[in-house]
Amino acid sequence: MAYVPERIDGDMTGGRRAYQRLPGVGGSGLWRSRTETWLGPDHLLLVEGVYTERYRRVDLADIQAISYATTPGALRATWALLTGAALMFGGGLLPIAYGAAPGEVLWLQAFTFLLVVAAGVNAARGPSCRFLLKTGVQTIEVPSLRRVRKADKVYEVLLNRVEAVQGAVSTPEAPTRLSAHFAAHPELLRTPGLRVSRARLHLLAYAAVLTSAAVSAVDLAIPLDMVLSVAGMVGLAGAVLLLAAVAEQRDSTVPPSLRALTWWALGAQAVSFVLSVAAGIAIVVTQIDPGTPPDPVMFETIPPEYRQPLDLLGLLFDLPFALPGFFMTLSYRRKLRRPARDAQATP
């Protein structure tokens, strides 16, 4: 939808001096823009964008409710980073098992260290949350308030400022009034319509991962440098598409089972990638040319007998997710088309 600028009363310079920045900077989702929240004398200003700032103004007198709830996102991210660190640690030790001197492969643990630091920073930022703000015409999610600590601060500031403008609903009377309001407006409790997704990205992603698995299987039978490169590139494309599908499936009609499977498939791709790189480095360091700096790009120089474990690793992480995912996506798309066909058939 095209952007419609919000109204502003008063001169720009005066307004600028009066703005107070609220904690929190951040975007929502994977590709959405940076957002900041500013508090004006009588309104809240949401600033979105890096190179072009767009403004959304919410009058304090129009705010009907604010809320937030914790989400498991931050915890999941910490666990994912720690799992990655553990895998990197194991992968970094692999060359030692093949006979490399610990000093030669110590630098590999730098990645482990980076992942552990990232996990620590993420954990220190505290639990994640979603912050919502309701006016008479819309419910806005504030993307800059994704952590409880910051959301709590803004919640208190907004509470005081909005109550100073509108007055307060006391703690004992709020449930009674809200219950009566729900009874008068049952639509407030009804689930809003979800965005219809045709799951094209899911289909493409699972098709790419399946293709990658098939090419890996071919490489098992006929070990060719070109085949392994193709498998790697298609697998990478599949991982990128899975990432896009994960972002696209949010707030959509994609069934929960398919959503969960897509997350698992993405995780499997990440683990498979880390393990492949670690195993590849281990083989290159210890078997190909001991003493030369390891280079993960040197997969094509790996002899077939060492490539087979890599191919098997790819198959193990691709097939169990890609096969059910592909057919679940097809079945979902078929179900989506059926009502449309039924509607055409009915005179």
């Binding site: 009907q64 409710a65 809320s67 937030y68 709830a69 949350c129 307060a168 609903v169 009034r177 309001h181």
Partner: peptide, 15 residues
């Protein structure tokens, strides 16, 4: 999930 909800008088205004 830990949750907070605060409603203001604007919610009960006749629209």
């Amino acid at each position: 999930a830990e949750a907070r909800l605060h409603v203001f008088p604007a919610l009960f205004r006749s629209e």
